[in-house]
C-alpha cells in the first residue's frame, strides 16, 4: 500500500511532465492555426516560388526564398568555420592531448556556447566586420559573412564536444589493430578512428547546423534586415529568425496579414530544424548499434 503523500508526489511529477508536453503542443497548435490563416490569403505556391519578401511594403510579395537563402547562407558560413575547427579540436583532445589537459580545456571550450548571443552579435558588428573590411573591400556593414563567422565560433563547442564523444566511442581494439600493423598515430586517426566515428561526427555537425539555423540574436544584429535572394556572403541579408524579431518588435498591428507572416516563417523554420534533429536522432541510433 502506498502512502497518500507518495501518491500526491507522483501526481505532481506526472502533471509537470504533462504540462511541458501540453505547452509544446499548444505552441505547435497556435503556429498551425495562424499559418492556416496566412495561407487562406496567400497561395502556398507563391510562398515557395516568389523571389521577393516584402510583406511590409506597399508592393507586397510573400516569397520565403530570400529569407531561406539568408538563413542558409549564414548557417553555411558558420558550418564552414565550425566544422574544421571543431573537428581538429576534437581530434587533438581525444587522440593527442593528455587526459589532464582535456579535462581542463573541455569545459573552457564549452564556455563558448555559454556566452550570451547578444554579445556575439555585437562582437560581429563592431569588431569582426570592421576588421574584415580591411581585407575585403566590398564587405557591407551588415553581412552574412561576419554574422556567419561569429556564429561559427559560437557553435564550435557543439561540433568539438559531440565529435569528441564520437571519437571516444571508437573501440580501443580498432586503434590497436591499426597500431599493430605499423600505422602511425596520424594514419590511425585519419584512416581508422575518424572514419569509424564519421556518423557521430555527422550528428554533431547536423545539430550544430540546426543550432545555427535557429540562432537569432547574432544574425538580427550583424547580418542585416534586407531580405535578398543571394548567395553572396558580402551583402546584407535577412534570416527567418531576424525577420520574426523585426516584426515582433515593430509596429505591425496584430491580427493583420503582415502579422501572420511571422507564423508562416516560424513554422518553416520549425520544420527545418525538426527535420535536421530527426536526421541526427536517426543517425545516432544507427551509430549506437554499430559496435554492439
Amino acid at each position: 500500500m502506498k502512502k497518500s503523500s507518495e501518491k500526491i508526489i507522483e501526481k505532481l511529477l506526472l502533471s509537470s511532465a504533462l504540462f511541458t508536453i501540453l505547452t509544446t503542443l499548444l505552441i505547435i497548435a497556435i503556429l498551425l492555426f495562424e499559418t492556416v490563416k496566412f495561407f487562406s490569403e496567400i497561395s502556398i505556391i507563391d510562398f515557395f516560388t516568389d523571389t521577393e519578401w516584402t510583406p511590409l511594403f506597399d508592393d507586397k510579395h510573400f516569397g520565403i526564398l530570400p529569407l531561406l537563402s539568408g538563413t542558409f547562407l549564414t548557417s553555411m558560413v558558420a558550418t564552414l568555420i565550425a566544422l574544421p575547427v571543431g573537428l581538429v579540436i576534437a581530434i587533438y583532445l581525444n587522440e593527442y592531448s593528455g587526459n589532464k589537459f582535456r579535462k581542463t580545456i573541455k569545459p573552457l571550450l564549452e564556455l563558448l556556447a555559454a556566452v550570451p548571443t547578444v554579445i556575439y552579435g555585437f562582437f560581429a558588428l563592431v569588431i569582426v566586420t570592421p576588421f574584415l573590411q580591411q581585407f575585403i573591400p566590398g564587405l557591407a556593414g551588415f553581412s552574412s559573412l561576419s554574422a556567419g563567422i561569429v556564429m561559427g565560433i559560437m557553435i564550435i563547442p557543439y561540433v568539438s564536444s559531440l565529435s569528441e564523444d564520437a571519437l571516444f566511442a571508437v573501440p580501443k581494439s580498432l586503434r590497436e589493430a591499426s597500431y599493430g600493423m605499423g600505422a602511425t598515430k596520424f594514419q590511425t586517426v585519419f584512416k581508422v578512428t575518424l572514419p569509424a566515428a564519421s556518423s557521430g561526427v555527422i550528428v554533431a555537425v547536423i545539430l550544430a547546423i540546426s543550432r545555427a539555423i535557429g540562432e537569432t540574436m547574432i544574425v538580427a544584429i550583424a547580418a542585416g534586415q534586407q531580405p535578398r535572394l543571394t548567395l553572396n556572403p558580402l551583402v546584407p541579408v535577412e534570416t527567418i529568425t531576424a525577420y520574426i524579431v523585426q516584426v515582433s518588435l515593430g509596429d505591425v498591428p496584430r491580427e493583420s496579414l503582415e502579422y501572420t507572416t511571422i507564423f508562416a516563417a516560424g513554422i518553416t523554420l520549425f520544420i527545418f530544424t525538426l527535420i535536421l534533429n530527426n536526421i541526427s536522432f536517426w543517425l545516432r541510433n544507427k551509430f549506437r548499434e554499430k559496435y554492439d
Binding site: 573501440p171 581494439s173 589493430a177 600493423m181 605499423g182 600505422a183 581508422v192 554499430k290
Partner: peptide
Amino acid sequence: VGMVFQKPNPFPKSIYENVAFGLKIQ
C-alpha cells in the same frame, strides 16, 4: 612483428580494405 587480438577486430571497412590496410599505410 604482427599481432592478432583476443576479439576479432576488423575495421568497419570492406574485406578488401581490411587486408589492404597494412600495405596502403606503407
